[in-house]
């Protein structure tokens, strides 16, 4: 293992440590809002939570870049690297969105999810740098995976908002009372959450459309056909169709609100499934987990 590769791994673990702190701070903030009855304003912990998240993200970015440098290529050619980059983009998307709208209230979800995903890929799927097999040597690897990662980042943030929406909805109907749910009063109303989730998921959908298309072009060059219902292709298709269903649900009376949010979560479950179970246990041409 080269020393740079080692540094990258150490940085990954450091980023995870900082994310843990950030997650705790986000959680403390939410709990604090629940405590301060009737005053659902962010607590002072929120600023520290965001600051720690930015710090963690910087270390994470450093880990990702050094991994790429030590491999002499883009750092997303196996499951570990894909996970490393995808979580980086996920947190980046979340931070970026905050410049546009204040969505810090889902910070606990995003930092927790990033921490979990990063932990799982690092502990279970870590492989040291190895050269790319000929089928992966293509600039389509850069394009295809880049847009896939971006799409995943938007889908994950959208899923965070959709789940918040579902909880908020239940609370608005009086189904979630009590102290433990009081923090939800710090969240926007469910229809505002839904509108925001929709805009983010639609961007995810556009990126996913590009992912499928870039994948098809690459498959044509590498395998001689642009679409062959390989397991990964099947699941990319399923994800695409599910989010198309979500978009329609959002535009249909009687499907807005809860059913649409459920569809969005089903779609995100398919995204996670596609990356984990399909990569590890399903047979197909996309054997790139590197394990």
């Amino acid at each position: 293992m080269s020393s740079l590769e080692n540094i990258s791994l150490i940085a990954t673990y450091s980023a995870m440590a900082v994310y843990t702190i950030s997650f705790i701070l986000f959680a403390v903030d939410l709990a604090g809002r629940a405590e301060s009855m009737g005053k659902p304003v962010p607590t002072r912990w929120l600023r520290s939570a965001m600051a720690t998240l930015v710090l963690g993200w910087t270390i994470h970015a450093f880990a990702d870049i050094t991994r790429g440098i030590s491999a002499h290529r883009v750092p997303w050619a196996n499951m570990y690297e894909f996970g490393l980059t995808a979580t980086l983009v996920l947190v980046g998307v979340f931070l970026g969105l905050n410049l546009w709208r204040d969505v810090r209230y889902v910070g606990a979800f995003v930092s927790g999810f990033a921490l979990l995903a990063l932990g799982i890929v690092t502990v279970n799927f870590y492989v040291s740098v190895s050269p790319l097999p000929p089928a992966l040597q293509s600039y389509w690897l850069v394009i295809h995976v880049c847009v896939a990662v971006l799409g995943t980042g938007f889908f994950a943030t959208g899923a965070a908002l959709s789940s918040a929406q579902l909880f908020q909805h239940a609370r608005e109907e009086g189904k979630l009372g009590g102290r433990s749910w009081r923090f939800l009063s710090a969240f926007p109303a469910s229809d505002a959450l839904e509108a925001l989730a929709y805009r983010i998921l639609v961007i995810g959908f556009v990126f996913w459309t590009f992912t499928v298309m870039a994948g098809a072009i690459w498959a044509e060059r590498a395998w001689g056909r642009y679409w062959g219902w390989d397991t990964k292709e099947v699941w990319s298709f399923i994800i695409w169709v599910l989010f198309a269903g979500y978009i329609h649900a959002r535009a249909t009376r009687g499907w807005r609100g809860r059913p649409a949010a459920v569809l969005s979560l089903v779609g995100f479950t398919a995204v996670v499934f596609n990356f984990t179970i399909v990569n590890l246990f399903f047979k197909g041409l996309h054997v790139y987990s590197g394990l």
């Binding site: 219902w229 169709v241 599910l242 329609h248 009687g254 499907w255 398919a270 399903f282």
Partner: peptide
């Protein structure tokens, strides 16, 4: 539109055996 949504979800489910 309702039928469109249901059919989209059905297409997604029906593709699963193919994987």
């Amino acid at each position: 539109m309702r039928t469109a949504i249901i059919l989209l979800v059905l297409v997604a489910i029906a593709a699963i055996p193919g994987s």
